[in-house]
């Protein structure tokens, strides 16, 4: 069938995991968007049991709700992404003019097996809107060296 249902976001319970990002970037499912100019390369992990590799640290130096209150938005102008040992990117938090719907195959979350086909797919494929994201953290500049050294993982 060339008509594929796109299910609205289900009102699922929020995840129990603590979200380390500022409150403004929180969504019901915890999904957020991170945009980087370029690609992050990292070495193949020696430990086959690990499912991810730490690549850096995201910091919002002006974010201080205790001092400026939750409604303060000036902190959005500055974000740092420390990558590897010695590189830093400067960016900002942007409110999206048009929010993004994050779409996945219905019931496919977690297996990561198949791509999302927008139409033209075969079988009784169904899609769902997993989340609507209104902000993104953008790093649109080249990384700059920090702390002197220039070795470590490149960006």
């Amino acid at each position: 069938m060339p008509s594929i249902p796109l299910h609205p976001r289900s009102q699922a319970a929020p995840p129990s995991t603590t979200n380390p990002l500022p409150q403004l970037l929180h969504t019901p499912t915890g999904l957020a968007l991170l945009e980087i100019q370029g690609t992050i390369h990292f070495p193949i992990p020696p430990d086959p049991s690990s499912s991810s590799t730490l690549v850096g640290t995201l910091a919002f130096p002006l974010y201080n709700p205790a001092l400026h209150g939750e409604t303060d938005t000036k902190w959005m102008k500055r974000a740092h992404f420390y990558v590897g040992e010695s590189q830093r990117m400067t960016g900002e938090v942007k409110k999206l003019g048009k929010p993004f719907a994050v779409i996945a195959r219905k019931g496919a979350r977690g297996d990561g097996e198949e791509d999302v086909r927008m139409g033209g797919g075969e079988g009784a494929e169904e899609l769902e809107i997993v989340e609507i994201v209104r902000f993104k953290v953008v790093f649109s500049h080249r990384p700059e060296p920090v702390g002197g050294g220039e070795d470590g993982e490149g960006v």
């Binding site: 380390p20 850096g56 640290t57 992404f81």
Partner: peptide
């Protein structure tokens, strides 16, 4: 800051 990790297996 908050540590950032990249999953070895991406979802679609």
């Amino acid at each position: 800051g908050a540590p950032v990790s990249i999953a070895h297996q991406f979802q679609h």
